[in-house]
Simulated scan of single mutants.
Amino acid sequence: MFIETNKLNLEVNMPPRDALYLLPERDLLIRLMQRTGTGQRVTVRELAERAEIAVGTVGNLVSGAQNCVTPATAHAVSQAIGVDLPILFIPVGRSAPAPAGGIAPLPEQAAV
Rank of each mutant, 00 (worst) to 15 (best):
G82V: 00
Y21F: 15
P86W: 10
L28H: 04
L88N: 06
V55L: 09
V12F: 08
L23P: 02
N60Y: 11
A80Q: 01
I90Y: 11
P16E: 04
S95N: 09
R94G: 08
A76K: 00
G37K: 08
M14I: 01
A96L: 11
S78T: 01
L29P: 10
E46T: 12
H75C: 05
P24R: 14
G39T: 04
L28T: 07
I30G: 04
L20V: 01
V55N: 14
V112I: 05
A19Y: 13
L10Q: 14
S95Y: 04
E25P: 00
L23K: 06
T57P: 06
S95L: 02
E108F: 07
E49C: 02
T38N: 11
Q34V: 02
V69D: 03
A48G: 07
L85Q: 08
V92D: 13
T73P: 00
N9C: 02
P15E: 10
F89S: 04
V58E: 14
T38Y: 09
V69R: 10
P16V: 02
P97Y: 03
R31E: 13
K7E: 12
I103H: 13
S63E: 11
T38P: 02
E49T: 07
N60S: 12
L88D: 08
A74D: 08
R26G: 00
R35L: 07
A96W: 11
A98H: 12
G101Q: 11
N6T: 05
F2Q: 11
S78Q: 07
V44Q: 15
E108N: 05
V62L: 07
P105N: 14
A104H: 12
M33T: 00
I103Y: 15
S78E: 05
Y21K: 05
E49H: 09
M14K: 04
A111F: 06
L85W: 09
A98Y: 10
V62I: 11
D27W: 02
Q34N: 15
L88W: 07
F89I: 01
Q40A: 15
F89Q: 04
V83D: 07
L106E: 14
P71G: 11
T36P: 00
L22M: 04
R50M: 09
R41D: 12
P107C: 11
A51I: 06
A65L: 09
A72E: 13
T5G: 03
A111M: 05
S63Y: 03
M33V: 00
P86E: 09
F2C: 02
A54G: 14
L32R: 12
Q40L: 15
A65Q: 13
E46K: 15
L88M: 06
A72F: 04
D27Y: 04
V55T: 11
G82R: 03
V92E: 13
N6L: 08
L88A: 06
G82I: 00
G102L: 06
G93F: 10
G102Y: 09
I103F: 15
G102K: 06
V12C: 11
L61S: 00
G101K: 10
T43S: 15
I53H: 00
P15Q: 06
A76P: 05
V12I: 15
V83C: 09
K7W: 05
V42M: 15
L106D: 13
G93C: 09
I3R: 14
